[in-house]
Amino acid sequence: MNKKSLLIGIIIGMAILSMANLVFASIGGSNAAEPQGIEVVVEPGDTLWAIADRYNEQADMSINELLFYIQRANDLKSAIVQPGDHLTIPIE
């Protein structure tokens, strides 16, 4: 095999890998890019537990599972919320 054939093979291989990367990124990236859900505003007296209890059936999760996902979706460091906070509730 001469140098020209090897170079052409490398270029074609890189092009195929690049195309495959684009295809797989578009397939897997659509759900991970934006969390789906509804936005709620925390009212006075609300707790994260009460909010998870209110929406757990819609989310088809236990209260504890939804509590975890609410914290993760909203980058909360603790379960403490304040009136006026906007939270995304991950409901499919």
Rank of each mutant, 00 (worst) to 15 (best):
K77A: 13
E43Y: 05
G45K: 06
R72Y: 10
L48R: 09
Y69C: 01
A52Y: 12
M14T: 07
S62L: 09
V40F: 00
L87K: 00
Q82E: 07
L17A: 08
A79V: 03
L6N: 05
F68V: 05
I51S: 13
N31W: 15
E34N: 15
I8L: 13
A25W: 08
I38F: 00
D60R: 01
G28V: 11
M19R: 03
I70K: 00
E57S: 14
R54K: 12
D75R: 13
K77V: 15
V81Y: 06
P90L: 05
I12S: 13
G13M: 10
W49Q: 07
Q36M: 06
A32S: 06
N21W: 15
L87G: 04
V42Q: 03
A73G: 00
S18F: 15
N21S: 14
D53K: 12
I8D: 07
G37R: 02
I8Y: 05
Q36D: 14
Q36R: 09
E65W: 07
A73H: 01
Q71G: 02
L22V: 12
E34I: 12
M14C: 10
Y55L: 03
G9H: 04
I89M: 02
S18W: 06
S62P: 01
I51L: 15
V81T: 10
N2P: 03
I63V: 15
G28W: 12
L66F: 02
E43A: 14
A33T: 11
L66A: 10
N56F: 11
E43S: 14
T47S: 15
L76W: 10
A73L: 07
Q58A: 13
G13N: 04
E34H: 15
G84N: 04
R54C: 05
A59F: 12
P44F: 09
E39W: 00
K3Y: 13
A20N: 05
P44A: 13
V41Q: 09
P83G: 08
E65Y: 10
L87A: 08
Q58R: 08
P35G: 13
A59I: 09
V23G: 05
S26W: 06
G9E: 02
L17H: 03
A32E: 10
G37E: 10
A73D: 14
P83E: 01
P90V: 01
S30A: 14
I27V: 13
M19C: 01
G37F: 08
V42E: 04
L87Q: 04
A79K: 05
I11P: 00
E43G: 04
P90T: 02
N74L: 02
G45L: 07
S62W: 11
Q71E: 09
S62Y: 05
I16M: 11
I12L: 12
E43N: 11
V40M: 01
